[in-house]
Computed example of a mutant assay.
Amino acid sequence: MTAAPPPEADLSLPAPEALPESMPEVVDQVALARLYGEPLFTLPQDLYIPPDALEVFLEAFEGPLDLLLYLIRKQNFNILDIPMAEVTRQYLSYVEQVRARNLELAGEYLLMAAMLIEIKSRMLLPPKVSDDGEEAEDPRAELVRRLLEYEQIKLAAERLHELPQLGRDFLRAQVYVEQALTPRFPDVHPQDLADAWRDILRRAKLVQHHKITREELSVREHMSLILRRLQGRRFVEFGELFDPTQGAAVIVVTFIAMLELAKETLIELTQAEAYAPIYVRLTYTPA
């Protein structure tokens, strides 16, 4: 008598329509990505990936000289005694990789490669001796000169790049500062003083009289006169210190005397605002 076989277990999954809406249909795989928050288990068939999208560039060179200098410095070669065979081999290996990806970019690199091969060939030949008995110049001399000049320019460019730049390392700040209660008179510019002086001369010419006299004028004396006129007064207008009726000579001496007093800090020239009248006063000396 044989025993009845046990009932088979039902291992089938429920129908897709019975699953909750938040659960994906595939539960035994890891999602490749998420698109708008939803798991993505297979790549779309219409997804286009450019051929160069997954390439990684470890070094970027700005030209053939930059690549050549990199190869020399990386292996600690003496730039004044370049081993042309090893450098040329490494350079041509890089150029072949560039040609496989971008033929237009490889043009200038191929020109340098031809120059390296030429130098290498010239070094294999016995050196030529000139008529005066001196040996010819080293075939690498021109290349070494170009490399040294390029390295100097590159280092200078790096130092300039490290300097702070407006918009990259810092921004210009603009802060509104409330004006202090104590008024600060602007400095008198030389141009304003020259304009006022020309106006005084113009008025002096209008009222001057033609006299043939010899007059001795003293700058020190007029300095004393100006100081006496300023005694006991806070401010005196610039034009009040000149008397146009005395003639241009007296006005010139008075102006020189005023400049000497200002130079010796005995008087001050002030102006309330631009294009405002100029005032003269004695220098304030604290007790």
Rank of each mutant, 00 (worst) to 15 (best):
R122P: 02
F170G: 04
I72Q: 06
P164K: 07
V26H: 11
G247H: 01
G167A: 06
M23D: 10
L40D: 01
A100M: 08
L269K: 08
L282G: 03
R229I: 02
R146Y: 03
L105Q: 15
G247Q: 04
T213N: 03
R122W: 05
P24D: 02
Y279C: 07
L259P: 00
A156N: 14
H161I: 05
R73G: 08
I82V: 13
E162C: 03
F57T: 14
L40E: 04
E151Q: 15
Q174H: 12
I119M: 11
L58W: 11
V250I: 06
R73I: 06
V253Q: 03
V27Y: 05
L69P: 01
Y279R: 07
Q165V: 01
I226R: 04
S224E: 14
L110Q: 14
P183V: 05
A114I: 05
R159M: 09
L269W: 00
R220Y: 02
S130R: 14
V253P: 04
V188E: 05
Q152R: 15
L58D: 13
L68G: 04
E273S: 12
E8P: 15
L80D: 15
P51K: 11
L35D: 10
E178N: 13
L148D: 07
V27W: 10
S22C: 07
E142I: 09
A173V: 12
R281T: 13
L65W: 09
S224P: 00
M112W: 00
L111W: 06
M223G: 12
E86A: 15
I278M: 08
L147Q: 09
T245C: 03
E21R: 14
L259A: 10
E240K: 15
S218R: 07
